[in-house]
Write a protein that binds this DNA or RNA. Structure first.
Lengths: 187, 187
DNA sequence: GTCTATAGCTGGATAGAC
DNA sequence: GTCTATCCAGCTATAGAC
């Protein structure tokens, strides 16, 4: 059930370009040039550019989550694991010049009518929230802030998203480090 | 020193379209159609599309900040003022179907080389942080979380940004309400 | 399944009349 | 300063040969 080499190459190239240049600014022409395949082949595998975007999102979701889990494997303590999510994001973002969250970037470019993509992205974010929630359940919260466990989960999630946006604005890791400090105070 | 009516109309129409459809997805043709001016007039007032974007950002900054300050005038207590920033954002976003932060949207669409725009936006965000900081200075923090005043300022800022992104993803106000709850626990 | 050729449009920007 | 006419490069998508 191996996918064609052409299809894989298209998706690889498109992922890179969608993220680096944006979806709207990346043309089919550039994709077929860099992937070195023919126009017709692309439309054979992906009926439209939006289908290609959808495939990119799906792949990126899987890759991102797998990378996060792998990063956290050596860390045993759940509290440290939660804090390390911010280290992971910092490393990841600094490698790519603080271009921001892949999914947030796509959403910002889409028309509000492209519901399919919005749902895909929100499913991914829900997966992350669930992952955070499970880690929180293993912690004996000292709870200095009188927030419920669910609300602390939300805080971690929002601080992660917010600090990524801020880091991409300021082109530096300071916001992500700050978010980690704030979360540490909440746990 | 009144600006020409044409220029004003161009900027009004462009602002609306840039925000509703995105910068890249809005063409010069559509702008001149809806503003009902001639192609040449647009290029007379704005040498390039990027100059028009820059003018939009500048105007949006001023309008947004003025609207926030006006919203907060009737509220006297500084702690309530801080929390009301989230009410303001919620009202503002619900009016526009949770399309997200104007500035974040633009940044997500830009090439990383458009430094001029990045700097414009970061100046705006700095203004907001300073405003938050001044309000915080008037509060006697009970400080349950052992965070410095500067770090609480950062937390408010990051939660505001993060919850706006999340609200635009989920198309609802829940994230913004949650962010307010979290901030209330920090103050 | 992969190719080339091209349709059909729209993009941003310019020239030159008035 | 505002207009119309137009350039040319780019876009997404399709047709039809191999």
């Amino acid at each position: 059930m191996k996918e064609s080499a052409a299809k894989t190459r298209i998706l690889t190239v498109a992922s890179k370009l969608f993220y680096e240049q944006g979806y709207n600014s990346t043309g089919i022409n550039q994709i077929i040039d860099e992937a070195d395949i023919a126009r017709g082949s692309l439309y054979n595998h992906f009926p439209s550019k939006l289908d290609l975007l959808s495939a990119y999102i799906e792949q990126a979701e899987n890759l991102w989550f797998t990378a996060l889990e792998t990063y956290l494997v050596p860390i045993k303590d759940p509290r440290s694991k939660l804090l390390a999510i911010f280290d992971f994001r910092e490393e990841e973002q600094s490698k790519i010049a603080f271009r921001g969250c892949q999914f947030a970037k796509v959403m910002a470019e889409l028309s509000k009518d492209d519901l399919r993509i919005f749902e895909q992205v929100s499913r991914e974010k829900d997966k992350l929230k669930l992952y955070i929630k499970n880690l929180l359940a293993q912690i004996d919260l000292k709870n200095p802030s009188a927030l419920t466990s669910d609300m602390i989960c939300e805080a971690i999630f929002l601080l992660l998203e917010g600090s990524t946006v801020a880091a991409s604005l300021y082109k530096g890791e300071a916001s992500i480090k700050n978010a980690k400090t704030i979360v540490a105070a909440l746990l």
